[in-house]
Structures are given as structure tokens and as C-alpha cells.
Computed example of a mutant assay.
Amino acid sequence: MRQFLSLLVVLLLFLPLESTVAQAALSTSQTKNEATINTKSLAKGIISVGFKTKSGKKAKVGITKNGKTYYYNLPNNGTLTQFPLQMKNGEYTVTVFEHTKGNYYKSATSKKVTLKLKDSKTVFLQSVQNVKWTRSMSPIKTATKLVKGKTRTEDKVRSIQNYVARNVKYDYEKYRNVKSGYLPNINTTYKSKKGICYDYAALFGSMLRSQGIPAKLVTGYSTNAKGLHAWNEVYIKELKKWVIIDTTVDAATKNSGKSIYKKASDYKKQYEY
């Protein structure tokens, strides 16, 4: 039975998800287009970036600390988009890039910001580009109902995990046709009741964050999945530690009566948001 379930998970899960870290050639030459790096929410561990180009070209933002950079696609119409500063306290360099040709981008603006959070978990409570939520969203209202009357973090997490695993089915068609640069929309996943692993992780993470439970969306590799995978790490207050929860696997196996916490040895993290 165990071997069957392992095989089932491998068959169900996800084609390689393109990492939000772009493999692009980025130069430091400046452009004169309108780029904004807003630090008003720095105390929450996030920044807002906007970029409006006259050319309508594609844009990216790079967030660097201690030699590691996260690259994200950025709307080119000036809309402010929130991004996490998830690499703990210290100095970050935020750079906005505009596409030139081929795989090349040039810098529009750059700014250094210093993060000084009292609690590093704060950033994993916020709404950001790929874990995007508001209080008015239906899945967030459902999360509030699911945790009503519960005081322990573990009980709240289990209630939301059970809801996602039982109500969202794996979307094979999206698996075959998902495009590069895809971002999850939790309203769409909630209403359609289907998605790929990125959708599962974004929905679960958003519902937890809305209830004051720190949750990371993590991408990398797992022995339970074929190709690049997405899952969550959740901070359990009673345990005083982060645990791995994979609602995509739980949905495929119906959790089989096992603990919802997964073995760290089965997962290899690349990026966290």
C-alpha cells in the first residue's frame, strides 16, 4: 500500500514549475523610465515596487542580500506589487530591470534598504506577489470560520489543512499547459476547487497568514514529487518550530491517517517566500 501511494503521488504532481528566480542577463546601465521602490511597509518585512515604461517592455525586480538574489516578474504599468524581504535582517539591494532584447535586461533604478525586524517570522504573515490575499476574499473568510473557537495553533492549522486537502483536486490540464511565469490566484483555486502544487501552497499559505500563523511558500524538490515542487513551512507555536506541510501530497493520498507534518529529509528547499 505504501509503495502504491508513493507512486500515486509521483504520478499526480506537477511538471517543473519555473522558478521566480530568472536566469536572465542583467546589466547595470540606467534607464529614464518611471520606477518606484516604496519602503513604507519595511516594518512588516516587505517592500512595494512599481515600474511604468513608455515602451511597454517586460520588467523584473531583483532583491539581493549577501550574494543571493531573488528575481521576480514585475508589471510594467506602474502597479505597486509587494515583495518579501525573507533573508532575515540586514542590508538589501533592490533593483528594477527593464527588458532590452533576447534574454537581456538593464537597470532602471536601484535602492539599498535595511531590514530590522524584531521577529523574523513577521514577513511570513504578509500578502506578497505569490501569496496574495485580502480580508474580503472568500477563502480568507472561510479560514476565519474554520478556526473559530480554536485556541491552539496546531488545531487551526489542521482544520485549514484538512479543508484544502479535501476540497482542492489536482488539475491535470493546468499541469500540461501552465505557462512560464505563472502566478497563483487563491480566489480562482478556491472557486474552481482545483490547482497544481503552486496553487495548493499559495492557498494554504494565504489562509494561514490571514489567521496570524506564519507560513512560508517553499519551492524546491521532494522525493514525493517529480520535478520542481511547491509546499509550505508553517510555524507551530506550541512546538516552537517550523514544520513541513504538503497539501498537494495530502490531497492525493487523503493523508492516509498519517501526521500532516512531513519529513524534512524528503524535501530539498531552494527558495522560500
Results as ranks from 00 to 15, higher is better:
residue 203 L to N: 11
residue 182 Y to M: 04
residue 71 Y to L: 14
residue 110 S to K: 15
residue 11 L to Y: 14
residue 74 L to G: 07
residue 252 A to R: 04
residue 104 Y to M: 08
residue 182 Y to I: 09
residue 242 W to K: 03
residue 186 I to V: 11
residue 119 D to G: 10
residue 23 Q to A: 14
residue 37 I to G: 02
residue 136 S to F: 10
residue 65 K to C: 09
residue 63 I to T: 13
residue 99 H to A: 12
residue 121 K to V: 04
residue 202 A to C: 03
residue 73 N to W: 14
residue 219 T to N: 11
residue 38 N to G: 06
residue 33 N to A: 13
residue 266 D to E: 12
residue 85 L to M: 03
residue 196 I to Q: 04
residue 97 F to C: 06
residue 228 L to P: 02
residue 182 Y to G: 01
residue 160 I to L: 06
residue 37 I to F: 05
residue 222 S to H: 03
residue 130 N to F: 07
residue 134 T to C: 10
residue 67 G to P: 13
residue 268 K to V: 09
residue 95 T to I: 07
residue 58 K to W: 11
residue 152 R to L: 11
residue 151 T to R: 05
residue 172 Y to C: 03
residue 193 K to I: 06
residue 128 V to H: 13
residue 104 Y to R: 05
residue 58 K to G: 03
residue 191 K to T: 11
residue 149 G to L: 09
residue 248 T to V: 00
residue 57 K to T: 11
residue 128 V to G: 15
residue 182 Y to V: 01
residue 173 E to P: 00
residue 190 Y to E: 00
residue 142 T to D: 09
residue 230 A to M: 01
residue 197 C to A: 13
residue 56 G to N: 12
residue 6 S to M: 15
residue 45 G to L: 04
residue 70 Y to P: 07
residue 178 V to C: 06
residue 7 L to A: 15
residue 119 D to H: 07
residue 103 N to M: 04
residue 252 A to G: 04
residue 226 K to A: 11
residue 238 E to D: 02
residue 176 R to S: 02
residue 21 V to T: 15
residue 164 V to M: 00
residue 38 N to L: 06
residue 183 L to M: 08
residue 113 V to R: 05
residue 31 T to Y: 05
residue 105 Y to C: 01
residue 51 F to T: 06
residue 257 G to L: 12
residue 213 I to Q: 11
residue 198 Y to K: 10
residue 185 N to F: 09
residue 201 A to K: 07
residue 166 R to H: 13
residue 74 L to Y: 07
residue 248 T to I: 01
residue 126 Q to A: 06
residue 84 P to H: 05
residue 269 K to G: 04
residue 17 L to K: 02
residue 118 K to P: 01
residue 156 K to Y: 00
residue 84 P to W: 13
residue 150 K to F: 10
residue 153 T to K: 03
residue 99 H to G: 00
residue 74 L to C: 08
residue 113 V to K: 00
residue 64 T to M: 15
residue 231 W to I: 03
residue 228 L to Q: 10
residue 136 S to H: 08
residue 192 S to Y: 07
residue 72 Y to W: 13
residue 164 V to F: 01
residue 250 D to T: 08
residue 231 W to L: 01
residue 168 V to E: 00
residue 70 Y to I: 07
residue 72 Y to L: 09
residue 132 K to T: 05
residue 151 T to P: 00
residue 58 K to F: 09
residue 2 R to L: 12
residue 214 P to R: 11
residue 161 Q to V: 12
